[in-house]
Amino acid sequence: MAPQSPIQFIEAALWCTGPFELSYTDPDQKWLIRKDMVSLLQDFPNLSPSMDTYIHDDGTIANLLNAHGTVHISSSSPQVPLTIWLHENYPYVAPIVFVGLTGMAPSPTIHHDHPFVDPSGLTTSPYIRTWQFPRCNLKELVHNLVKIFSRDHPFSYSATSSPFTHSSVVSKEALDRLEGMLHYDTMALRSETDKEVEKLLALQQEMDQQVKIVTAIVQGLKRERWELRDRMARLAKEADVLINWLKVHDPKRAMAMGDDDIDDVFEGVDEESRLRLQCLAADLSIEDTIYALDKAVDEGAMNFEIYIRQVRNLAREQFFHRAMVVKFETSRQLL
Rank of each mutant, 00 (worst) to 15 (best):
F9N: 07
E11Q: 11
L22D: 02
S23F: 01
P27W: 01
W31G: 08
W31H: 13
P45E: 06
N46W: 02
T53Q: 10
G59N: 03
G59W: 02
T60N: 08
N66E: 06
N66S: 15
A67T: 09
G69W: 06
G69E: 03
V71I: 14
Y92E: 04
P95H: 07
L101S: 13
D118W: 03
P126Q: 05
R135P: 03
N144C: 10
L145Y: 01
I148M: 05
A159N: 12
S171V: 07
S171D: 15
D176V: 06
L182V: 08
L189K: 13
S191C: 08
V197S: 04
L200I: 06
A202L: 05
D208N: 11
T215A: 14
V218Y: 06
Q219S: 02
L221K: 12
D230T: 10
M232R: 11
L235W: 06
E238N: 10
A239Q: 15
D240N: 13
D240T: 12
K247N: 14
H249C: 08
D250V: 04
D250W: 05
M255D: 09
I262V: 15
V265L: 15
F266M: 13
R274N: 12
L277D: 14
C279T: 05
C279E: 08
S285Y: 07
I286M: 07
I286T: 05
E299V: 09
G300I: 07
G300P: 07
F304R: 13
I308C: 15
R309G: 00
R309W: 04
V311S: 05
V311N: 03
N313H: 15
R332Y: 08
R332L: 12
L334M: 13
